[in-house]
Every structure is written in C-alpha cells, then in structure tokens.
Simulated scan of single mutants.
Amino acid sequence: MLTEARKAEVDAYLAAFAERDEAGRRPVVRNGHDQPWPVLTSAIEVPASRVDDKRID
C-alpha cells in the first residue's frame, strides 16, 4: 500500500510538469529507483522512485 501511494505521488508530480521545453524534451522525468526508504517495521521495504528535475529556477 505504501509503494502504491508513493508511485501515485510521483505520477502526480510528473503530470504537473508534463510540458515540454523548446527542444521537445520533458524537463522532469522518472529516473529509475533510489535506495529503499527505511520503515519503522522490519516487515517491509518501500522502494523510492527517483525523479530528475531539469528545470532551471
């Protein structure tokens, strides 16, 4: 359930920045997985998605 919630959070973030730049590329993209999140119980590990935000602020 935590994994699905995290995936939904990343999907919503990516959808919010789905516009493309002048070259036709997306400035915010999914970029594999990071180290699993530590969780207080030892029964589960939550994979952490990586997002590459290339926007210049």
Rank of each mutant, 00 (worst) to 15 (best):
H33C: 03
R50L: 08
D57V: 12
S49I: 11
V10Y: 01
R26L: 01
A16Y: 03
V46C: 13
K54P: 07
L40H: 15
A43T: 13
D34Q: 11
I56Q: 10
A18M: 05
V10S: 06
G24V: 06
P47I: 01
T3G: 08
W37E: 14
R6P: 02
V46A: 13
L40D: 15
A23S: 08
A8L: 14
A43C: 05
D11K: 09
L2C: 11
A8C: 11
N31K: 12
P27H: 04
A5P: 03
D57P: 14
A8D: 12
F17A: 11
E9Y: 09
T41C: 09
E4A: 11
A23V: 04
V28W: 00
P36W: 01
P47H: 04
A5D: 12
V28I: 07
V39G: 07
P47R: 07
K7C: 09
K54F: 02
V28K: 00
G32R: 05
P36C: 06
K7Q: 12
P38G: 03
L40V: 13
A18F: 06
R55S: 08
A8R: 14
A18E: 08
T3M: 02
S42G: 10
E9F: 10
D34K: 05
K54G: 13
V10C: 01
R55H: 10
A5K: 12
I44H: 14
P36Y: 05
V10P: 01
V29Y: 12
S49N: 13
A43N: 14
K7L: 10
V51L: 07
D21E: 01
Q35S: 12
A15V: 02
E19G: 02
H33L: 13
P27W: 00
A8F: 10
E9R: 08
R20P: 01
D57H: 12
L2T: 09
S49G: 11
T41F: 11
I44A: 09
A12T: 08
P38N: 10
I44F: 14
M1A: 10
V29F: 03
R26W: 02
L14Q: 00
A23L: 11
V39F: 08
A15M: 04
G32W: 04
R20K: 13
M1H: 06
T3F: 04
H33E: 06
Y13L: 01
A5Y: 07
R20I: 03
R55Q: 08
I56N: 09
A5M: 11
M1R: 05
E45L: 09
S42W: 05
E9W: 10
K54N: 15
R30A: 00
Y13C: 00
I56C: 08
N31A: 15
A15L: 07
A18V: 06
E4L: 11
W37L: 15
A16T: 04
N31L: 11
A8H: 08
R20Y: 00
R6V: 06
D34C: 09
E4G: 14
V51Y: 09
R30W: 00
R25V: 00
K7I: 11
I56W: 09
A16K: 02
A23Y: 13
I44N: 06
E19L: 00
P38D: 08
D57L: 15
R6S: 15
M1L: 06
